[in-house]
Design a protein around this nucleic acid. Sequence first.
DNA 1: TGCCAGGCTTCAC
DNA 2: GTGAAGCATGGC
Length: 274
Amino acid sequence: MITKEWNCIHLEQIASSGQCFRWKKTGEGRFLIPAFGRVLQVRQITPVMFEADCSQQEWKACWADYFDEQTDYDAVIASIPAQDTYLSAAAAYGRGIRILRQPLWETIASFIISQNNNIPRIRSIITRLSAGELTPFPQAETMLQWKEAELRAAGLGYRAPYLHKAARMYLTENAPERLRTLCYPQAREYLMRYPGIGPKVADCICLFGLGHKGAFPMDVWVKRILATHYPQGFRLERYPHTAGILQQYMFYYERTLSERNGRKASVVHKGAQA
DNA sequence: TGCCAGGCTTCAC
DNA sequence: GTGAAGCATGGC
């Protein structure tokens, strides 16, 4: 068992930030995370401390990257201009969020499934594909052996052929090796060649599967936020290496407020920066 | 019952 | 290049 003390770590916020679909809550601040061939237990001990049931060696080998240990989230938040009242509020609200670096194929498949779908249903489809909540996510090789009809049976609907073809391309083109060598714009362009992957899904994969934190997924929520709070335009170029983190703050803030206040409820922040 | 969902593909124009 | 229609399915 190891413990980590970070200023910005809130497991509940990460679990409900829409970036991961397989965390299983087992109690207050307690989660099981199936990834990398095992199930990690994590627990929030204090607002700035959590524990994980793994060795230091295992932590360094995969979970440190998974939890994005090397990024200074305080510095990211500090980089937000004070006059940008909406983003400042969103970051303060979701300051415990971290960008998870998730297994690549699982991220590609999950976000192909996510298109025009809602989060509870994405979770249920992924659980069916994995044949359980804590069992390993099926590898591309496995999915390629399945028939499209089997994917449809898991609830994928029209996305079934997308996923099947994506698995084939992923394997035949040796995508993990290729993607490792590409910068963010190149990786995004490469991924958009896959069926079922457009700009938004490609950005999610770049952000959550490849660690390109300059990726800024534009989904229906973010479009709504930008239209409401940044009618003069959002200065994305200000955040070439952290835009994805800020996007998560916005997404989480807006969704959480909406759930509490009713659909599309939104606090108006006059003076949100252009 | 109807709307909507962390969109994408296809097809007019 | 831009905009609209169509898409499977189930949560709410």
